[in-house]
């Protein structure tokens, strides 16, 4: 760890002398395939911060049939997103392939709140909250408007591909969770036929949207799951109950209503949303999060990361099981 800190310092000082004033370098908690570091320095007596995102080295050693997206592609897409008026942090330095820090990039630190539970509860956001759903809808429409011809290197993953991918990841765990088998069967029978492709963020949800109490939505973070796919996928993911942080009656991220979110999206994108596709992707989303939890637990089981949180996250799978059952057996559309 200390080794990484000195590597970060050395890299930055090489880039700019102002980094001789580095006061603190700290790794932020969380992240599955990527690490996030915050670097604090002083410039003209003002304290400033920048962020480093790089691949989590523990995972890259492991054989992985679905390797994480190269961070340099994430970095390029974030730059592109900025052109299309999507709020994203500015990229500062892109690490070269042979950098001792591995693959990654430095970006500006944006002030604000991103933690999902704080977004749904914090008093300082009380006045902003009623408008967040429609703002999120408009921002997502902008992300989906980024031309795919500029993003040739990205994976295409439509509903059958996503289904197959998560089915195979689940099978590889050799665990028997009947609700998951039931959900896969339901998804097979209700497979959405939508074939329209657009650039998806892939992890557009409460927790990855940075909000300032004074200025509103500041940045869309964590682009590591971006790919080309069905726009309904991104629209349903933010509504998955795991991202409502207890506010079950506010389907959009625990802060807003579906109608505000969908209307704003439809208005700006010109697309007409399909309710059956949204439901398909919400079930897929909940199942996906359950399998991601299993995957993080698997990092513990296999000995790659023996921290308490990797062990404990396996017990969050049952949360997605109840959500899946409630979704699948609910014939009515949600509010």
């Amino acid at each position: 760890m200390n080794d990484t800190k000195s590597q970060i310092k050395e890299y930055l000082i090489n880039k700019d002398n102002k980094f001789k004033s580095i006061l603190r370098i700290e790794k932020l908690p969380g992240g599955s395939s990527n690490e996030t570091w915050v670097i604090e320095y002083s410039e003209k007596k003002i304290q400033k911060k920048i962020i480093l995102r790089r691949h989590y080295l523990g995972i890259t050693n492991k054989q992985n049939s679905y390797p994480p997206l190269p961070l340099l592609i994430e970095c390029d897409v974030m730059k592109l997103a900025q052109k299309y008026e999507v709020p994203v942090p500015k990229i500062i330095y892109k690490l070269k392939n042979d950098s001792p820090l591995g693959e990654g990039f430095f970006m500006e630190f944006v002030e604000g709140i991103a933690l999902g539970n704080k977004i749904v509860e914090n008093n300082s956001l009380k006045e902003l909250r009623p408008n967040l759903a429609s703002q999120c809808g408009s921002i997502l429409a902008k992300i989906h408007s980024i031309p795919t011809s500029d993003t040739k290197k990205l994976t295409i993953s439509l509903a059958p591909d996503e289904l197959k991918k998560y089915q195979s990841i689940y099978r590889d765990f050799f665990l028997d969770i009947p609700v998951f088998n039931l959900s896969f069967k339901w998804l097979e029978k209700n497979l959405t036929q939508n074939k329209e492709l657009c650039l998806l963020h892939g992890d557009y949800r409460n927790g990855n949207i940075l909000i300032s109490p004074a200025k509103g939505i500041m940045s869309v973070l964590d682009w590591e799951l971006l790919h080309l796919g069905d726009p309904h996928e991104d629209l349903a993911w933010i509504c998955v109950n795991s991202w409502r942080f207890g506010k079950i009656d506010l389907p959009v991220g625990g802060f807003g209503k579906r109608i505000d979110f969908y209307n704003a999206y439809e208005k700006l994108s010109g697309r007409k949303l399909n309710k059956k596709s949204l439901k398909f992707w919400e079930v897929m989303g909940s199942l996906k999060w359950g399998i991601m939890c299993l995957k993080m637990y698997d990092a513990y089981r296999s000995g790659y990361d023996t921290s308490v949180d990797r062990a404990a996250i396996g017990r969050r799978v049952s949360e997605t099981e109840i959500d899946l059952l409630r979704l699948i057996t609910n014939e009515e559309d949600n509010e």
Binding site: L182, S318, D323
Partner: peptide
Amino acid sequence: HLFKTTMEKLSIDQPSYSSFLAE
């Protein structure tokens, strides 16, 4: 059966989870 089993699992794993409480 699946509802009951899942609720039993959650009574151990996460009895404050929103869907558990709603159910």
